[in-house]
Structure formats: structure tokens, C-alpha cells
């Protein structure tokens, strides 16, 4: 190393500062990280999961964790089988699913419609703005007990909570889209002799569609949260109701089972909405 540096220094005779000359320099390279192959990655992920489950099971059996509060994987696994073979699994899943989807569709479409309608009058948009902000800042879940009182303990109240959660996001996002509508595009339409309704239908709505589509993924999660919280408060069926009920009766394994099923439902709906989003984006923007 020193041989190389002296040979270079022989040609250019520059007096070296003493402090720098004293410190030997280690050659540095770009940090390199080779990505694992997919099978290896999956194997490692599965291994992590297995060791976590094993650690939990061992901790529970050696009383390091109190199984009364924490339960244990073996108990959860057998409860899972019971839940699906003898329990209310399908009724709970379909109930929660229906509430979520209805609330999602209702809230998203109402919010989008309200946001789009603000295009028609800038005066009304300004007049309504404080109310929208106000409604946004209320934690909607705090209204859940009230909504249950009004709509009863059945489907309607859960749908209403899910819709309330998703509607505000849709309104605000869609209105952002409305404000971003290209003014030159509007001028083009008017120069061609278009009516306001034509501009709205053929230009404003398509321009805002990407904004509306972008809400879907957020809203499906919000709608599920709304439905589950509604079930916590009062319901006859549903995964949220099962979690709450099992928690109160100290059936911790059942709590875990319902949480696992709920998470699976959530992931399934998220994946479905993401796929829908991809299709819609391709169908709308063509770029």
C-alpha cells in the first residue's frame, strides 16, 4: 500500500501535512448486499414464524408467560379447528364482511359525490369548508355509541359507523382532486361550446377518478375498523363481537382465533382492493 502511494508521490512533489501522513488509510469499498433468492427468503420468513410460535409455546409451558392471560399456540390451534367446525366462524365472517363492504361502498361513494358536488359552486364549497374540517377532526369512533342507539344493534349501525369513517376521507380527497382540475381543460371544453353539465360529466369526473381510486385502499381498512368497533359495542354476530365476548369470558384462545381470522379477512380485502385499484388505474389513466 505504501509502495503504491510513494510511487505516485514521486511524480507530484507535494509536501504532505504531517497529521494526514501519520494516519494509515484503509481502502473503502461500496457496501454490497446480495439479495436472497426467493426460496431462501421464504424459508427464513417461515423459520422466524416457527421460532416465534415455538418460543411462545415453551414460555407458556414453563410458566414464563401465564397461559391464562396469554394462551398458547397449541390451544389456539385446537380452538381454531373448533371455531370452524362447531363454532360460529362462517356467520361471524360473513357478518363482518357484509358490514365492511356496505359501509365502504356507501361511505366512499357518498364522500366522492359530496366532494365532486363542490365543483359546482365555489361559494358553497367555501361555505361548507368549516363543517367538513370540523367533521374530520371529530374522532368518528367516539360517535359509535350514539350511532348504535339510533340505528340499533343490527347491520345498519355497523354500516353507518364504517360509512362515517370512510366518507370524510373520500370527501376531502375528492375535493382536492376537484381543486386540481386543469383550468385550461375547462377552457377547452367551454371554447367548444360545452354546457356546465358536459364539463362536469366529461371532464371533471374523469379528472378526479384517479383521486377517488387512491382512497379505496385506505377506506377498506377504515371500514373494517368501523365495523369491528361497532360490534364491540353491541352486536349479535361478527368477529368483533366474538373477540369482545371471548375477552369478557376469559377465553383467550378464542380471542386469538378471532383476531387471526379478522387479520386474514383484512388482508384478503386489502389485496382484492389493491387489484381492483390496479385495474381501475389502468382503465382510467392509460399511461
Amino acid at each position: 500500500m505504501s509502495g503504491q502511494s510513494t510511487s505516485a508521490d514521486d511524480f507530484i512533489e507535494v509536501p504532505k501535512p504531517k497529521a494526514q501522513a501519520a494516519r494509515p488509510r484503509r481502502p473503502r469499498r461500496l457496501p454490497k448486499e446480495v439479495l436472497w433468492s426467493l426460496p431462501k427468503l421464504i424459508l427464513i420468513q417461515a423459520g422466524l414464524f416457527a421460532s416465534l410460535v415455538a418460543a411462545w409455546e415453551i414460555a407458556a409451558r414453563t410458566r414464563l408467560l401465564d397461559p391464562f392471560f396469554w394462551s398458547q399456540p397449541s390451544a389456539i390451534a385446537s380452538m381454531l379447528v373448533v371455531f370452524f367446525s362447531e363454532g360460529t366462524a362462517w356467520l361471524d365472517i360473513t357478518t363482518t364482511f357484509r358490514e365492511t363492504i356496505l359501509g365502504f361502498v356507501l361511505g366512499t361513494s357518498l364522500g366522492a359525490a359530496l366532494g365532486l358536488s363542490l365543483w359546482w359552486s365555489r361559494n358553497w364549497a367555501r361555505a361548507l369548508q368549516p363543517y367538513i374540517i370540523c367533521f374530520e377532526s371529530i374522532p368518528k369512533l367516539a360517535l359509535a355509541p350514539l350511532i348504535i342507539l339510533i340505528f340499533g344493534i343490527g347491520l345498519a349501525s355497523k354500516v353507518a359507523i364504517a360509512a362515517a369513517l370512510t366518507m370524510v376521507v373520500s370527501t376531502i380527497t375528492t375535493y382536492s382532486g376537484v381543486r386540481a382540475v386543469d383550468r385550461d381543460g375547462e377552457r377547452l371544453f367551454y371554447s367548444l361550446g360545452a354546457s356546465r353539465w358536459q364539463v362536469f360529466r366529461k371532464f371533471v369526473i374523469p379528472s378526479c377518478l384517479p383521486w377517488i381510486i387512491s382512497i379505496l385502499r385506505v377506506n377498506i381498512g377504515l371500514a373494517l375498523t368501523g365495523a369491528v368497533v361497532g360490534e364491540f359495542i353491541a352486536a349479535e354476530h361478527g368477529l368483533g363481537r366474538t373477540i369482545f365476548y371471548a375477552g369478557q369470558t376469559y377465553e383467550i384462545a378464542l380471542v386469538w382465533v378471532a383476531v387471526i381470522v379478522l387479520a386474514s379477512l383484512s388482508i384478503a380485502m386489502y389485496v382484492a382492493v389493491s387489484a381492483l385499484e390496479k385495474v381501475l388505474v389502468r382503465g382510467v389513466t392509460h399511461s
Binding site: 385550461d184 377552457r187 377547452l188 367551454y190 371554447s191 367548444l192 361550446g193 360545452a194
Partner: peptide
């Protein structure tokens, strides 16, 4: 009056 002449921006 709008729509009486063609206008390209």
C-alpha cells in the same frame, strides 16, 4: 358566445 369559433390552446 362560446362554441362559435374553433380555439386551440
Amino acid at each position: 358566445a362560446i362554441g362559435r369559433v374553433g380555439y386551440m390552446l
